[in-house]
Design a protein around this nucleic acid. Sequence first.
DNA 1: TATTGTTATACTCTATAACTATA
DNA 2: TATAGTTATAGAGTATAACAATA
Lengths: 162, 162
Amino acid sequence: MKAIVPVAPADPAAAPQPDPPDRVDASFLESLVGYSARRAAVTTMAAVVEQLTPFELRPVDFSVLSLVARNPGITSRQLCQALEVLPPNLVGIVGALQKRGLVERRPHPLDRRAASLCLTAAGERLTADAERAVAQSDAEIARRLPADESRTLLRLLRALYR
Amino acid sequence: MKAIVPVAPADPAAAPQPDPPDRVDASFLESLVGYSARRAAVTTMAAVVEQLTPFELRPVDFSVLSLVARNPGITSRQLCQALEVLPPNLVGIVGALQKRGLVERRPHPLDRRAASLCLTAAGERLTADAERAVAQSDAEIARRLPADESRTLLRLLRALYR
DNA sequence: TATTGTTATACTCTATAACTATA
DNA sequence: TATAGTTATAGAGTATAACAATA
């Protein structure tokens, strides 16, 4: 609750010069789902970035590896749709992972335009290690939540983006 | 549930070429709070961007205006801390809002290095209108949530980023 | 000496247009 | 004609270093 600003007693010509707030009120912004989701995403992704640094992976690289690991033979187009990445931006991502010997492109059995993406043995190992690190860090973050409401949070977030 | 891949009967030398998945399994990524928060943030922010387009405001411009409206006399540094924007990046944001006649810089009463930011009358009007539009759109998005769990979601998100 | 605000700049992320090879 | 993948490129967003003025 904010105190009523006292009227200047002596100088009616002066503009009502507000004193700078000692405490910033962000309650309106924080009442917005969009603002809060964005802030929470920035915070949690910072932890993910940190976890992935030793693997020399960005979050999007990690997402690609994880999807390829669980969906061997997946195409670039399917990756683009699943991750909401535009095709031109995926080219470099997959290309770099391939150059590092983590991902392989095999001929697609049904469509000669497409490539079937698979992990190499090294890719499998790196992905498993990175998934362990990220999952652990994520569980750490989720411990900020009261009791075990992380499943509630996941359910509500999914309702927003699906 | 995934069917077991049948072993190729005739050619043992062929690498086990997986058929491309017809449905992408993203369940691991979706079990991560970070991934889900990011996806939800992207979805909800897209709606905010759309709402703000007629006002010629980006989300960060809107956030600045809203904070200045509710915290008259706020400084750039306080804005930076509240919104997690780096000082060099705020300069242009506030400068553009000032150039549009929405924000005023007044001399800070206690610190001659700083400026006290206030909205002009036009800024007050635009901010009020934009806040109405964004709040309504946000409530629309929140209706994707079951029952009225939007307050639960806000509480859990805040626990993550505070 | 530390902090507020600023300039210049580099780096990353995201988006668009246009092309090829194939369906 | 439509789609998968690619190239080139533009624009937005984010980050660091260095500086002036003031505390």
